[in-house]
Every structure is written in C-alpha cells, then in structure tokens.
Design a protein around this nucleic acid. Structure first.
Lengths: 146, 146
DNA sequence: AACGTAATTTGGAATAATTCTAATTATCAC
DNA sequence: GTGATAATTAGAATTATTCCAAATTACGTT
C-alpha cells in the first residue's frame, strides 16, 4: 500500500481549525486525524498509534497522545470514556450517544435528536447549568450493526 | 467523635444481601458501606479509605477496593466514572443522573423520572438492546446545592 | 537561501489508579 | 472447638497516561 492512493480525507479544515487556535499543521496531526476519519470505530490511543506507525514509522506514542489532545481541543474530535477503560476517540461531531456492546466490546454511535438533549437539560433542578450532556448505553447489539 | 454515638445506618440488609450472593458479612464490608451511606458525596476509593481507617486502623487500601467491588456486585452501590478520574461510589439506587460541577469538582445526584430512561432506550435503533443507561451532565451549579 | 524563534516531536522516566499475588487471618457450619 | 473456605493484608505489578528535557522542525524575516 502506497501513500499516493489514499484520498486525503480530512476536509482541509484541519489546517484552518488548527490555525484558528494558533497551532500548526504537522504531518503527525494530519495523519492522526485521517486515521480517525477513515475508521470510525472509536480507537484507543494505542490503536491509533498502531494505525499511524506504518505511514510514519518514526512517530512516537507520546506524539499520538499529543495530537489526539490537540484535536479534542480544536473540537475536531471527541474523547469518549467508558468505565475505567482507555480513552477512545470519535470524529463524529453530531449530537449523539454511545452504545457499548458488552459482548464484543465495540462502541457504536447512536444519533439522537437534539431536542432530547435539550429535554434532559430541562430536567435539571434550578441552579444547575449544564453545558454538556453525555449519554451512554450498555447492552448487546444484534450482530454487526452500525 | 466517638464510635458509640453514630447510628448503624445500613438497613441490616447488608448481611442479607451479601448472604444472597454467597458472601460473608465482615466488619470491613459493613464499615465501608456505612461510610458510603453516611456521607453521600461520591467519594473515591482513597477517600473511603481515609474515612474508614480511623474506625478500623488495620484496614488496607486493597480491602477497601475489594469491599467496594463487592458492594457494587451486590447492587448496593453504584460505581461512577467521569472522564479519566478515579472511580467514585454512590449508594443511591434510585434512577438518577450525575452532575459534575466543573468549578468545585463535586458530583451531585440528579433524580430523573424513569420514563426518561425508557424514552432514551426507545430511541435506540432496532437491534440495540440496552440494559443500562448512564447520563452525565457537566457544568456549573449555583453554590452549595444537593 | 540562511537565521532566529517558537512550536512540535521524541524517548524515557514518572505518576496515578487499580489489580494481582501469596501469605495470614477470620468466619461459619458442624 | 475444629476445619474448610472466604476474606484481608502488604507489597509488587500493571495500565493508561502525563511529564520532561533534548532534539527537530516549521515559519516569518532578511
């Protein structure tokens, strides 16, 4: 597999979004972002590292952590945590919840209407002001969904 | 503060619930459970350890972890995770969400109608069968609520 | 094209929370 | 009381992540 054949998937917005935050575009950051866009299975930092290394053999795990953190900071990627497991990364920016399959260990996105998030926030007692809501399901999915 | 004055808060159900699971009642387990019932501020294992040690100076941190795990197994306590922070423990068994105050770091229970949990589950695409839903809010609370 | 400055990357050490292990101790049924 | 089994203990080990200081790279200016 050569580098030339794969489309550059990131919407070119990367360099722009980075610049907006006063950050530079680097091969490492672009590649990490590409990897997240191209296989949206909520990989861990280790998994991203493994996917990125063949393309950029010199990259270090610390850099993968740095890049992921940067992408989260720029609102290009979301960090997803489930119980005490390693943090997973998700380039889906639409409002959605996560479904953790107890059998396969896989994580699936579940798109939800924004009204539902709003409704949830409205259930908060007075004085509580939420700027984020996270919803996580745990259970079994019928074979290979998503 | 002496030991004698505090009421034994656990509903005596502890020994029973433990027995139901083929487990034994021990001073360590009772004390850990008491501590959770008496100050419901979602303590970490370390915090539970600190609260328990004055009463039972010989107790070890490993035992606190073991006891907490046991209580979770018996459905007397729920483990609560927020991002990568240490696991917190919550004896509130009613259906509820958690609100993490970004300013104080405190965690508050937010009771929610069961209908809401049901409604959420009904939003899942066909083939997804959830047996648990977790809802977490992040934001600011007006001073000392809860 | 070379330069200086600052951001970024790197490898390895350090940290934090938790789990594991092997030995000791406590509990319950008889 | 005694013995089989479960629970506790102290410390080592593990896992995911962050920190650090040094080396590299990129960018804007000449």
């Amino acid at each position: 597999m050569t580098t030339a054949t794969q489309p550059t998937r990131h919407p070119a917005g990367l360099a722009q979004k980075l610049a907006d935050s006063g950050l530079r575009s680097t091969p490492q950051r672009e590649l990490v972002y590409d990897v997240l866009l191209n296989k949206r299975d909520h990989p861990t930092a280790d998994e991203v590292f493994a996917r990125v290394k063949p393309e950029l053999p010199g990259i270090s795990l610390a850099t993968v952590y740095n890049c992921l953190e940067t992408l989260v900071q720029c609102d290009l990627v979301r960090a997803v945590n489930f119980e005490r497991g390693p943090t997973r990364y998700c380039p889906n920016l639409r409002p959605h919840a996560h479904f953790h399959d107890e059998v396969t260990g896989q994580t699936h996105d579940v798109d939800l209407p924004e009204t539902l998030f709003a409704q949830l926030k409205s259930e908060l007692p007075p004085g509580f002001n939420a700027n984020a809501v996270e919803i996580t399901f745990r259970g079994k999915a019928k074979s290979s969904a998503n």
